[in-house]
Amino acid sequence: MDYLWGTTILVGFYLGGSALHRAGVPIPGGVLGLLLFYLALASGLLKTAWVERASTFLLRHMVLLFVPLTIGLMDMRELLSRQWLAIVASLVVSLLAVLLTTALLGRWILPVEPGLHKDADCAGQGEDR
């Protein structure tokens, strides 16, 4: 019952988000659903206990959900053989760029508040080195 009720809520938010998307909001339906769902949780309209198990279950088995699309790569051998260099280069360049931007900016601005600084130091000890 827990799973059923939670899944129904998730599907409801997805359908709601998709309806808004079709009505002209330029953000994907799933993301609109996510934002509404987040607001409902943050405002307390939706109890976390109602959706915890269904959400965790769906996220844990997300890999299953993108198996069919990934299998579609079998029809793209020709495109991949022509474009692999652009794809791999774009992947590596962008990966390094994001990692550096977020890590350096994060190191610079995240520990500024004194309370956070202490917290971060405690948690960080023992892991590195």
């Binding site: 938010f13 997805y14 987040y38 949780l41 769906l58 996220l59 993108f66």
Partner: peptide, 17 residues
């Protein structure tokens, strides 16, 4: 199966919250 990626996106709101 692919359709369920939609509700899975919504479910991301849970860890985010």
């Amino acid at each position: 199966l692919t359709w369920w990626l939609g509700p899975a996106t919504v479910a991301l709101g849970f860890p985010m919250h």
